[in-house]
Nucleic acid binder design. Structure first.
Length: 313
DNA sequence: TGCCAGGGCGCCG
DNA sequence: CGGCGCCATGGC
């Protein structure tokens, strides 16, 4: 379990460093397509916080209605620095958000030996090694539903651009000026489909409004979805929303509802499964960790496909 | 220019 | 049920 190493103040912001984060990787966790609201911080800006540490990688963004930066130094494994967070907020908010309260080493070993053949296990061992440090975030359920509706038949840079525009236009400004929380269902409901026109969501606009209506009216109860013991029943509740099918629903359940048994299959995963498991794969063998195995395979496929050779957006 | 992007819907056999 | 064209938009 993570523990506080120290806390201070830099550039007028609270800065807290935590140890005991295991293999956690900021870079991989925020570049594996599960959240669209974080961006790498330019090196010049990082230098204003850490003038004597040239190798630090950091991202910034808004989650839980707070603007925050996560920084890691590759030379200090298991240690991260969170900017604009007190020690109390780190332990009560960001440790759960980052899933740092979960023992991933044990999960990884399980994933590596869950499949029936030696060839299958070799694939998973490589995928786990490649994606080591990824954590499945515990994001806001409503935000993941809208985010993955927007993601359909779309690419990651444009998804990020659309969600950013959505938050700037409709989200409440956080205490950190110029940054915005994800808009509420009620706000989007009120804006109507016309209000979304300049966000350029295209054919997805009607899906967003339908989700906002069904959720703000209580027709779909997100707490009930979360509390639902059956994964299939939870998915059935979400797919009542227009534009939410098996893939979008699975992503929301995995990234926003803590349903780690979800195994979303998109175009990357289809390529991955065809490449590594031509004879098929029984994902139920991963049990409640199927979603984490999926994240490793997804990241591995993008790695093999050369997605990471150019600088991240 | 045409193709593709963390898909889903409607329609068709 | 499985396959297929379509849906908006922008980057390459």
């Amino acid at each position: 379990m993570p523990f506080i190493i120290n806390s201070t103040e830099i550039n007028g912001l609270p800065v807290t460093t935590m140890g005991g984060c295991g293999s956690f990787s900021v870079q991989k966790t925020f570049d594996c397509g599960q959240t669209f609201r974080f961006y790498p911080i330019p090196q010049e800006k990082i230098q204003t916080f850490f003038p004597n540490s040239p190798s630090i990688y950091a991202v910034s963004g808004v989650a839980l209605e707070k603007y925050v930066m996560f920084a890691e130094n590759p030379l200090s494994q298991g240690e991260i620095t969170i900017i604009n967070a007190s020690p109390e907020e780190c332990l009560s908010l960001w440790v759960p958000y980052l899933s740092l309260d979960i023992d991933y080493d044990t999960i990884d070993r399980f994933i590596e030996c869950a499949l029936p053949t030696e060839e299958n296990r070799a694939v998973m061992k490589n995928a786990v090694a490649c994606g080591k440090g990824i954590r499945v975030l515990r994001q806001d359920p409503w935000e993941t539903i809208i985010s993955f509706i927007i993601s359909q038949n779309n690419n990651i840079p444009r998804i990020k651009k659309i969600i950013s525009a959505l938050c700037i236009k409709f989200g409440k400004e956080t205490p950190y000026p110029g940054t915005y929380a994800f808009p509420t269902a009620e706000t989007l409901c009120q804006s109507g489909i016309d209000g979304l026109a300049d966000i350029r969501t295209g054919f997805r606009a009607k899906y967003i409004i339908d989700a906002a209506e069904k959720i703000s009216s209580g027709e779909i109860d997100l707490a009930a979805v979360r509390g639902c013991a059956s994964f299939d029943d939870a998915l059935a509740m979400l797919t009542k929303i227009r534009g939410v099918g098996p893939k979008v629903g699975s992503c929301a359940l995995l990234f926003g509802f803590g349903k780690t048994e979800a195994f979303p299959i998109d175009v990357w995963m289809k390529k991955s499964l065809a490449r590594h498991f031509p004879d098929g794969i029984d994902v139920t063998r991963f049990g409640k960790y199927a979603g984490i195995a999926q994240q490793y395979l997804f990241y591995y496929e993008r790695y093999l496909g050369g997605e990471f050779t150019s600088a991240a957006q």
